[in-house]
């Protein structure tokens, strides 16, 4: 049931915003409905599909499993912010996703990219099996995952200065 709004202040994509939110509002709804950041998608709202994956304080999180009030004081980064900031890891992944056709409908893509960005910041030379393991928390219903693995492999190679394989 509805209850009194709580005022929170957080940084989203480098801009500080103060919002009055119901305690039951999750971060994804705050991003989408209040801030117009519709690149964060909702696929299941119970933390399984990964479509809503964003960065909270530098680590990936399911925006549907984080209440907005929990993000009070947090630094949140979404696909829009990382794109506009020309994050080099993301840029390499975006280029590879387009070149390899690693997306079809594109609904899962922002969440997948967030997971892949975090992965490639940690691991420079992943095997295909490593990649498959790491992105298993992000569901894709259109592709066969094969092209996504290709694209992440290519991006890793480019970031390591090896060029696409």
């Amino acid at each position: 049931m509805a209850s009194e709004a709580v005022t929170i202040t957080l940084s989203v994509n480098g801009e500080v915003t103060t919002q009055a939110v119901e305690p039951r509002t999750h971060l994804a709804d705050l991003l989408r409905m209040r801030l117009g950041l519709t690149g964060t998608h909702l696929g299941c709202e119970h933390g399984v599909c990964g479509a809503c994956t964003v960065f909270v304080d530098g680590a990936t999180a399911r925006a549907c499993l984080v209440l907005a009030v929990q993000a009070d004081g947090a630094v949140v980064e979404t696909i829009e912010g990382l794109t506009d900031a020309a994050d080099p890891t993301l840029a390499a992944l975006q280029g590879a996703f387009v070149a390899r056709n690693a997306l079809q409908c594109g609904f899962c893509t922002p969440g997948l990219l967030a997971t892949a960005v975090e992965f490639l910041r940690e691991v420079t030379t992943p095997s295909r099996a490593d990649i498959r393991e790491r992105i298993s928390g992000n569901y894709c219903r259109c592709t066969g995952y094969h092209a996504i693995v290709d694209a992440i492999e290519d991006a890793a190679a480019r970031l390591a200065g090896r060029g696409p394989t």
Partner: peptide
Amino acid sequence: VPRPNARRLVEGRGQFTDD
């Protein structure tokens, strides 16, 4: 050839109905 409409999807600029 790559899809011309893929770029906006990887940048989070899709226009799904709820967006």
